[in-house]
Design a binder for these strands. Structure first.
Lengths: 336, 336
DNA sequence: TCCCACCGTGGAACCGGTTCCACCCTACCT
DNA sequence: AGGTAGGGTGGAACCGGTTCCACGGTGGGA
């Protein structure tokens, strides 16, 4: 609990000036080799570790990146954050998390960041930014990158949700399904997500094109979550003419659909087929057929975009991500 | 992108000294009401926001807490972190994350923190600390709290894993099982986890007490993960006299066991019963019977312990957590 | 021989807050 | 009237780094 040594102590012990110590610390050129050695030895002797706070103040940089995301409600987000960590963990940056469970919190988080010496950059995952929020960040000159958000005004990484919906439709059509249903998020959801809507868009268009348009009663939407999806699925299964397959806008919702099917005494895929979206880790565990999107890679790519922006490498283009594809497992079969 | 105003600008505009502005900022007593108003007005005029970095330096506090945890390999950890966020999110502290995937990284993370002006406190989740790491933190005087780590030397929150193992055994015994098996982590795992071993301890003792001791070939251990658990389960199911029920040391491993059973063409629970541990969110989704431990509450409790330590409220005792219990769902039945 | 580069170095000033001490002024007491 | 207590305030010093300017010394070119 003694007061830790600081740079002046090191300078005194090594018999040099503080400027020289600082130069050694930062590996700047212009220090003679033997001096450098002497300073290093003094640092070791004292167990010196530079103060982060002081460095931040004088540098005007924080070596910290902020991540704003709905971590806990969406396992897919965790997987994306994992990708972010892959990249940022190797850099010198710290990662500060702001979990968001309501849209109000997104604003809070941005306000917290709205000062340049708090974080050097911000990654926003799966949350659309309002114009106000966007300009607030831009006024502060804080670099931002978006993951799973489709906003042309900022560097972003996004997946082609429309294509994903199309793939799901094709997979069901190939298995012989004609009467299919959709379970997804309400359009007016607390975060302003649009991915569910885009997945439906691609899905509905492909079904229509195949001459098997979605019946209006086969489109069910509700707040994101497993339980709600289960209830919606139950409604579908209780229809006079129930669908033979259900496309859920996310794996979490697909789990709810599976649960509803089990409760209704329906075998999957014997009684009804189910296809999800995301391919989160546990989808493989229970054999859920789902549209795989490169979650982890998207996080990596977003982090790289942000680091590039911080390094001032101009406006780097979003890197190419692996393509979407259907991970065919055990929940899709022929119609009953 | 103009240079943001700082405290001296505010002082000049309000016609007061910087000390007074600082007092207003911190709501300290000893400022006349009209002066306070004048300073507030000046701040608004200039759009002044105090610099975090400067405040950190002069205060010697960071308003930041560090969390060291294996986030991505263990969904149960995510749930605990969620509890931490519940509590810390409401405080003025930021949360800096250090993900740990190997034991070397745990050391790295601690080194990064081993300087008081980096974080004000550290929460370690599900990672035992070595003596070196412990003393390093204590030398720096950084408060630490542990979640899911049983270390009497520090404030900690832990669950009774031995009891959990006992509960699992009783549940299987009640269903009529006598030849049961265990799938868990290797004793020498990269993180030094001991929870798997303690769960086995309680499990084995209870089975023995009931006169149905675990056969040595029915204890299988491997690196944590779904796939490995699946392989181990496969070995069990291929035994000359296969077990009628399998206890997995975590839900993730239970998913692997379920997968192995499905591949072996065994119905669950018709052909074999499975019980897990943790009750992560998705356990409910697929009807996994499992030992429920209060994950989120443990995170909350750990965060409260740390905040109490930071506030200097003496050595607060670990708060009582909800009890462990078996969440009986659809994967345990009578032996075939 | 003189001059000039240039390398290596020391140290003051600076980043933007907080804190503490000194000081003024008013009000109340004797 | 003189003394004192105490609220309100200004501002220098400080937190611990970085940076930039000035300066000494050495070597090469004219």
């Amino acid at each position: 609990m003694v007061r830790p040594p600081h740079i002046r102590d090191v300078a005194a012990l090594a018999g040099v000036g503080v400027g020289t110590v600082s130069r050694v610390l930062n590996d700047s050129a212009g220090v003679a080799d033997d001096t450098r050695e002497r300073v290093r030895a003094a640092m070791d002797d004292l167990g010196y570790r530079p103060s982060n706070a002081a460095r931040r103040l004088s540098l005007g940089r924080t070596q910290t990146l902020g991540v704003i995301a709905p971590f806990f409600t969406h396992p897919s987000v965790v997987e994306r954050v994992r990708g972010i960590d892959d990249v940022v963990g190797d850099s010198a940056y710290d990662l500060v998390l702001f979990n968001v469970e309501t849209s109000g919190q997104a604003e809070d988080a941005l306000r917290r960041f709205a000062r340049a010496d708090r974080v050097d950059g911000v990654l926003v995952v799966s949350l659309p930014l309002s114009d106000d929020e966007l300009t607030a960040l831009q006024d502060q000159g804080i670099p931002v990158a978006l993951v799973d958000v489709d906003d042309e005004r900022l560097p972003h990484v996004s997946n082609d949700d429309v294509l994903g919906g199309t793939l799901a439709a094709r997979h069901l059509l190939d298995a012989g399904h004609r009467r299919v249903a959709f379970v997804g998020d309400t359009v007016e959801n607390p975060f302003g997500f649009t991915s569910s809507a885009r997945r439906l868009e691609g899905f509905a268009a492909a079904m229509e094109e195949a001459g098997a348009p979605l019946a209006p009663e086969c489109i069910r939407r509700g707040p994101h979550g497993r339980e709600v999806a289960g209830l919606l699925a139950r409604e579908l299964l209780d229809l006079g003419e129930p669908p033979t397959a259900i496309f859920a806008a996310s794996d979490v919702q697909a789990f709810g659909v599976l649960d509803a099917a089990a409760r209704a005494g329906l075998d999957v895929p014997g009684g009804v087929s189910v296809i999800g979206f995301d391919d989160i880790d546990l989808a493989g565990a229970i054999g859920l057929t789902t549209v795989r999107q490169p979650l982890r890679e998207s996080g990596r790519a977003g982090a790289r975009l942000l680091l590039a922006a911080l390094a001032g490498d101009g406006h780097e283009d979003a890197p190419a991500l692996p393509e979407l594809l259907v991970a065919a497992r055990r929940t899709v079969g022929a119609p009953p």
